[in-house]
Each structure stands twice: as structure tokens, then as C-alpha cells.
Nucleic acid binder design. Structure first.
Lengths: 167, 167
DNA sequence: TTAAACTTTCAAAAATAATTGAAAGTTTGT
DNA sequence: ACAAACTTTCAATTATTTTTGAAAGTTTAA
């Protein structure tokens, strides 16, 4: 396979993956493109490579920056802006998980707590509801904490030991 | 808050969460409804509670069964089918992660391997591409394995110890 | 074998999400 | 202050996904 083809394949694949995870296709593609570029890329070039409009590029770059996984860069003598992606994968994973936690998991936990603390009068139906949502609350809380600590855990010696043992 | 209200809130929240994770809203709502029901629910009742059409209910129930997280049940003397959700949360998480791995991560890994093994002739650009996609391959592979082992890890003594330490 | 009681399928319609492009906004150099 | 070189915004359009509902299919009991 030739470089250009490989690059294109990667960008397409990453884009498709993104849309399965609630991130829009273009956003994931831009991110993919920046990840494998060894130098900062201008909006013009992003538009050209992905064949998208200026507005689309602008909005999705903004979203990526809000996620904290793409940065703006300025080049001396150039008026236009350039963009780079976070390339350290531990850092990337950490930012993504922090952001998803904040946007999705925390609000869900809040609701889970609310609904799991209603007074479960008499019926079996209500008891089961409270029981199941309480379990869910604990579970999601635990999973959220784990994700939170995943990166540092991944780096630390005990983590490495445990990972080896799990293989 | 009253039971009916709490139940509705839970179903709505779970549904919204689902759509952020690439699962459609109705599918997630049906799952939510079944999770908090202490007994098996008929299609008729699902349609009624969620205000959806027969076709919609049928298709989404099928999808949930394909994921292995909802089961059909038959009641003696009743001709119609009833449905229940997997209620054990470790089991649920394990099935979801197995399924997503199979459907999304494994295919992506295959592509990552392909594109990361092109011959990186001379240019810095190509070298960077191969380097970055290789790292990504390793990272995704590692993360995939971790998810795979999460449940058993969660249950085992060492895991519990580590989790305690991380808190 | 028939018919009642169900479930599944799928083309069409509706709802939702992403994209465009041009006008408005901003920044920088002179 | 002006205008060139950019970026952002957002209403309208386009594309994608989901939902509907009625016809076709299936199962069961008599």
C-alpha cells in the first residue's frame, strides 16, 4: 500500500469509528488527519484534504478544541491559523475520558441518584426499581472512577504488573 | 418524587445516554424499561409505555437480543412473547464490551495494522505516519484487552485491592 | 385445514443531524 | 482609517437515521 492510500484509509476508518461513538464523522476525520500530520495544518489544507466546506471545518475544529485535543498554532509571518492534535495517546485518552465523564456520565449519575432514592413504598415493583437503579448508580460510579484513573494506573508499576498477570 | 415519574425519568435518561454512545434512543429506552421491571414485559406493554409502533418495538428488541442483553421468555398459557433484560451489571458490561470489541474495535485494529506497516520510504511525513499509527495500534490493542478483562479483574481480590488504592 | 393471535419485514414518511456558503465579524499591516 | 486576509456564524439545504403501519409471515389450538 502506498502512503497516500494508507493515510486516506486511516482517516476514513477513524471517521467511521467516531460516528459509532457519538462523535461526528468530520470531527473524527479532522482529528485523524491532524494526528498523523507531522506538522501543523491550515484550515485551507484541511478543507482541501477532506473536501469539506469552510464552515464545516471551522465548527468542527472549534469542537475539537473544546474537547482539548486539538490546538491552534501560529506561524511567524503567516496570518492564518494552523492546527495540531494532541499526539500523546495517554494524554488523549485521559482528556477524552475526562470530557465524556463531565458531559455524559456525571449528569447521568445525578439522575440515577435522584431516582434511586425515591421511597419504595410497598410493592415489589417499586422495591425492584430502587434496588436496580441503586446498583446501577454504584456500578456507573465505580466505572467512572476507574476510567478516571486508567491513565495513571497504566503508567504505574503495580498497574503494569497486574496487566501482565491479566494477559 | 413518585414512582411513575422516577421510572419515566430513568428511561428517558438512559435513552439519551444511549444515543450519545451510538445506540439508538428507542433501543436504549426499551433496555432501560426492562432493566427496572421485576417481571417480563410483553411487546404490547413496551409499545404502550414508550408510545412506539409495533415495528419499532420488534426491530429494537431483535437488536437487543442480538447484543445478548435481552432475552425472550414464554409464559405458560400465554401465546405472546415476553422480554427480560440482563440484570447482572457485570454480565451486562461484559457483553456490551465484548460486542463492541467484535463489531468496532477488532475491525479498526485490522486497518490500523495494515496502514501502520506500509513501507515508510524516506520522508519525515511518512515516518511520522507509520510511527503514530503503530503507537495507536498498540494503544488500542492494550485498551481492548483491558476492557476484556475488566469484569474478572473487578471481581478478583487483587483488583479490589488496586481499586481501593486508587480511590 | 382454518383462523385467531401473534411477530416480522420493509418501503415510505418523519425526525434528526450534518453540511454548505455567503454575509458578518475579526485581526493585522500600512 | 482602510482594506486585505482571514475566521465565525447561522439559515437554508442536504444527507442520514429512525419510525411508522400495513402486508406478509408464523405459530398454535381446535
Amino acid at each position: 500500500m502506498e502512503f497516500k492510500e494508507a493515510k486516506n484509509k486511516f482517516v476514513q476508518t477513524w471517521g467511521a469509528l467516531g460516528s459509532q461513538w457519538g462523535i461526528n464523522k468530520t470531527m473524527a476525520q479532522i482529528h485523524a488527519l491532524l494526528m498523523v500530520s507531522n506538522e501543523a495544518v491550515s484550515m485551507e489544507d484541511i478543507m482541501e484534504e477532506l473536501q469539506i466546506s469552510r464552515g464545516n471545518a471551522s465548527m468542527n475544529l472549534r469542537a475539537l478544541m473544546d474537547w482539548g485535543i486539538v490546538y491552534k498554532e501560529y506561524k511567524a509571518g503567516e496570518r492564518k491559523e494552523f492546527f495540531t492534535a494532541e499526539k500523546d495517546l495517554d494524554e488523549l485518552a485521559s482528556k477524552i475520558s475526562r470530557e465524556r465523564s463531565k458531559r455524559e456520565i456525571k449528569p447521568a449519575l445525578k439522575i440515577l441518584k435522584e431516582v434511586s432514592t425515591i421511597e419504595a413504598k410497598d410493592s415489589e415493583e417499586e422495591k425492584h426499581f430502587v434496588d436496580q437503579t441503586s446498583k446501577l448508580y454504584d456500578f456507573v460510579l465505580k466505572a467512572d472512577n476507574m476510567l478516571d484513573k486508567m491513565t495513571e494506573f497504566n503508567d504505574n508499576w503495580l498497574g503494569k504488573l497486574v496487566i501482565k498477570m491479566m494477559k
